[in-house]
């Protein structure tokens, strides 16, 4: 099927099989390999991207369902490789280790902070509880999000 999707601000036209997931479309057809696939059944959150402003699991969405939508991936947060404020706060907090879950956490936290800039620790924990990290025990990730929120409030 022929689709057109806006990905990180650029219109991308492609012909895809109806069964192809959005995650595979981004990774294989558009070479945006920052989106990772961790479980393929919507539990781990590694493949989280933002579609029309909402964080979604790109392993549970078909590429054809994203036709006409605006998709933001991790590559869209750091267009020139320069880290955005959330990513910088995560770096400053030593948030991650192996990095495989990282893009999903960054996208989930990014969408959440935009809607809840004043969120406290417990709300952040709950908002990120659909993303699994096997390395860190989460505290450093939570600290990174809290730091980003504080910096953003303090301007």
């Amino acid at each position: 099927m022929d689709i057109t999707v806006s990905v990180n601000g650029a219109a991308r036209a492609a012909s895809v099989e109806a069964r192809k997931t959005l995650a595979d479309f981004l990774r294989e057809d558009l070479d945006l390999t920052g989106t990772h696939v961790g479980c393929e059944h919507g539990v781990c959150g590694a493949c989280t991207v933002i579609v029309d402003g909402r964080a979604v699991r790109s392993c549970l969405m078909l590429a054809v369902q994203a036709a006409g939508s605006e998709v933001t991936t991790i590559e869209g947060l750091a267009p020139d490789g320069a880290l955005g404020p959330l990513q910088q706060a995560m770096r400053d907090s030593h948030s991650f280790q192996c990095g495989f879950c990282t893009p999903g956490f960054v996208m989930q936290a990014s969408a959440f902070l935009r809607a809840h800039p004043d969120a406290g620790e417990q709300e952040i924990r709950e908002a990120l509880s659909g993303n699994i990290c096997r390395c860190t025990g989460y505290q450093s990730i939570i600290d990174g999000v809290l730091l980003a929120a504080r910096r953003s409030r303090e301007g």
Binding site: L83, D92, T102, P103
Partner: peptide, 23 residues
């Protein structure tokens, strides 16, 4: 010292290179 990781700029930007990223 808790020197900031040199791995992080690529990992946080989605520019890591994991096995499934290779074509």
């Amino acid at each position: 010292a808790s020197v900031k990781r040199s791995e992080d700029p690529r990992i946080l930007a989605g520019r890591g290179r994991y096995i499934d990223d290779l074509k």
